[in-house]
């Protein structure tokens, strides 16, 4: 009896963890791929906001969540084009350009998102209907999750296989390690970097749309609450490896699910204090990894000019 109860609780925890980490999974994967070609894009936060805003508006207007996801991803892609133009076309500083893209995305989404405030969307249907709710362990997972969570996991695995097992993936990794080598090998590094930024934009916009259409099913100004910046931190924790994005993001999702659960137990701690936890967890992970950096490694060498080298 105690065992079944434990399994049921574990099931609902896994469901909550997967639900809250799905948007973060996509934006972290996107930033990982962008950084693998030697570009840092802090604009992911703004791209995510635009993806959430446009995705929500389209899903609300058409009634189709899938169209919403597509529109959100497109919005993220279009905004990341600004970063690509500034960094690659104009030789602008990557950090400066990222903050510019963030500001633009913040302004655009709060300006054009006004009409979407208070709107309603129907998210994707759950994987299974309520008749499965009592099934052991898988019950809560199947009834609370939509197809987007397994889809996101699949995308991460495919991206990892693609990066490490294909010729074009190798070209991307070479570009991130050494611009000069890439050029000598006949790869066009600028083209690869542009692709890296745009793929990151597509995925961050998609992540925003998952957040607004599937997870919260509402739109509010600045609703991403720094998830894009958290993703930039988690990329470092995942050592620029798409496969490691999965466990890192899931652990992070677990801490978020835990905070939601803590609030639900009627704990007298202020919700504002509890909400600090995700940022502190992210910062803590970045610190641990930075202290151990010498032994773990994995940073694409071209990023050193942006992030700076140790001493």
């Amino acid at each position: 009896m105690a065992e079944t109860e434990a399994l049921a609780i574990a099931g609902s925890w896994v469901a909550a963890m997967l639900r809250s980490s799905t948007p973060l999974m996509m934006v972290t994967l996107g930033e990982t791929l962008t950084q693998r070609v030697g570009i840092v894009n802090l604009g992911v936060e703004g791209q995510m906001l635009c993806g959430a805003c446009v995705g929500f508006a389209v899903a609300a207007a058409t009634g189709s969540p899938v169209l919403g996801f597509a529109a959100g991803a497109t919005a993220g892609l279009l905004l990341s084009f600004v970063h690509a133009t500034l960094c690659l076309g104009c030789d602008a500083n990557q950090i400066g350009s990222g903050i510019a893209v963030f500001t633009l995305g913040l302004g655009l989404s709060s300006y054009f998102g006004r009409s979407a405030i208070g709107g309603k969307v129907a998210g994707l249907a759950p994987l299974a209907d309520n008749s499965f709710a009592d099934a052991l362990f898988v019950g809560p997972i199947l009834t609370q999750l939509t197809a987007i969570a397994p889809f996101a996991i699949l995308v991460v695995l495919i991206a990892g296989l693609w990066l490490y097992r294909t010729r074009t993936g190798l070209n991307w990794r070479i570009t991130g390690e050494s611009f000069q080598t890439a050029r000598a090998l006949g790869i066009r590094p600028l083209l690869v970097q542009a692709q890296g930024i745009l793929v990151g934009g597509l995925l961050s916009g998609f992540a925003g749309a998952i957040l607004s259409v599937d997870y919260t099913q509402t739109w509010a100004n600045e609703m991403t609450k720094g998830r894009g910046f958290v993703a930039v931190g988690l990329v470092i924790v995942a050592r620029w490896n798409p496969f490691l994005v999965l466990p890192v993001v899931l652990l992070f999702g677990l801490s978020e699910a835990a905070t939601l659960r803590l609030q639900a137990t009627g704990l007298t701690l202020s919700p504002y204090l509890i909400s600090c936890l995700p940022y502190l967890v992210c910062l803590g992970c970045v610190i641990i990894v930075a202290v151990r950096e010498g032994r773990i490694g994995g940073m694409p060498a071209e990023l050193a000019s942006v992030f700076g080298r140790r001493r």
Binding site: V82, T85, L86, S97
Partner: peptide
């Protein structure tokens, strides 16, 4: 809406960096 000022700031930043 005052969000237009944020958009203007973003545009200014993009223009200046470029």
């Amino acid at each position: 809406p005052s969000a237009s000022a944020t958009i203007m700031q973003g545009l200014l930043f993009v223009a200046a960096l470029g």
